[in-house]
Nucleic acid binder design. Structure first.
Lengths: 200, 200
DNA sequence: TATTTTAGCGTACAAGTGTACGCTGAAATT
DNA sequence: AATTTCAGCGTACACTTGTACGCTAAAATA
């Protein structure tokens, strides 16, 4: 029972999501999107939108989930690179910058909705970020001499810096990005150093 | 030549700015504001808006300037408190949290437009923040054993963390804020420690 | 095969938007 | 006192928006 019909429905649903992501850009945020424009780009009538989502909010939350998923997948891949002998800090930063480069619209969504006008959105993004922090904290706790409390605070600070550097990178050219990344790595070292000092 | 007329003009101009700030909130961002609503709240006809600003963008940039000014004034006051014997980190953080509490809409504007859809806005906010970083870097360079490069990176990291903590605080109650502030202070200590280690 | 379900469409409407244009009365200037 | 300037207003217009409602044809089910 593959369901020719259900299959087609899934397809246009995905078309809506992709249309919405496509319309995100440096000068177009999610709250600027209109249901009609998204439907138009997806190739369906405005009213058909409702066959898939209750409203734009619901679409948006789905998009946040999808962006979070992409990010998590990318980071799992980073962990593999680390396991086969890369520096933790450098590999993680590189992977994150890759995410910003190849999925900038997904990153923009997370970035903006983190401080957007919908509490549900903010909570959803915060959840994705917390995921990240917890994973990193777990790693730091087991691999460095740092107690649980400090490992968490360390991870939180690191993720904040990386995320913010990503935001800045969006507006920069290659040259500036290199400098930014270099600074970021130093800053992460500060935190690692300080946390290990206080947390043991 | 006080100018009864120029005086009145200045007054309604300010009314527009304040009306706009008033309409900002957790669930209403600048890009959601409409010229008509702002004009209505300021008590003038929509078309009169143009006597004061070319468009909403121009209003917004003025607002960013104003928010930046408020922040700078508050921080100058913090420096006075520090000079008369307070801890640098704690006093600064407290002052910043005060800003978020008493001028949350001004903070929201900076926070959101930092990653908003207008390059001019993003640049304006970045400028305000850079101001901050440079001041702190200068202080760190002269008061701690840290070379110029590292003082800057240290300052940048600290401001990023403080600003981000402010953003999180917006959605939190008193209890959570206390915890957040405590974590933040630890994180700033990490950075201070690490920077002093690497930068001397 | 007969019936039900449903993705997608077209029409229609009320509400809100930015802004062009020309007027008015009072302040400023001559 | 005569003239110019200009903040603020009202009208008007062309758009865009979300969404209610009922239809259709094809897939799913009975």
């Amino acid at each position: 029972m593959s369901g020719v019909r259900a299959q087609q429905k899934q397809k246009t649903r995905q078309a809506l999501i992709e249309a919405a992501f496509n319309q995100l850009s440096a000068e177009h945020s999610f709250s600027n999107l209109s249901l009609r424009e998204v439907a138009r780009e997806a190739g369906i009538a405005p009213t058909s939108f409702y066959r898939h989502f209750k409203d734009m909010n619901e679409l948006g939350l789905t998009m946040v989930d999808e962006a979070g998923l992409t990010l998590r997948q990318l980071m799992r891949q980073a962990r593999r690179r680390i396991a086969s002998g890369g520096s933790v800090i450098i590999t993680s930063v590189e992977t994150f910058m890759e995410f910003i480069d190849t999925s900038s619209n997904q990153f923009r969504l997370l970035l903006r909705e983190r401080s957007g006008t919908s509490k549900a959105f903010r909570a959803a993004v915060a959840r994705e970020i917390k995921h990240f922090i917890l994973e990193l904290a777990h790693y730091l706790e087991s691999e460095t001499p740092c107690d649980k409390q400090h490992a968490y605070m360390q991870a939180e600070a690191m993720v904040t810096l990386v995320f913010n550097a990503g935001a800045e990178a969006l507006d920069q050219d290659a040259q500036q990005r290199t400098e930014l990344t270099e600074r970021l790595i130093w800053q992460l070292r500060y935190i690692a150093r300080g946390a290990n000092h206080y947390g043991s």
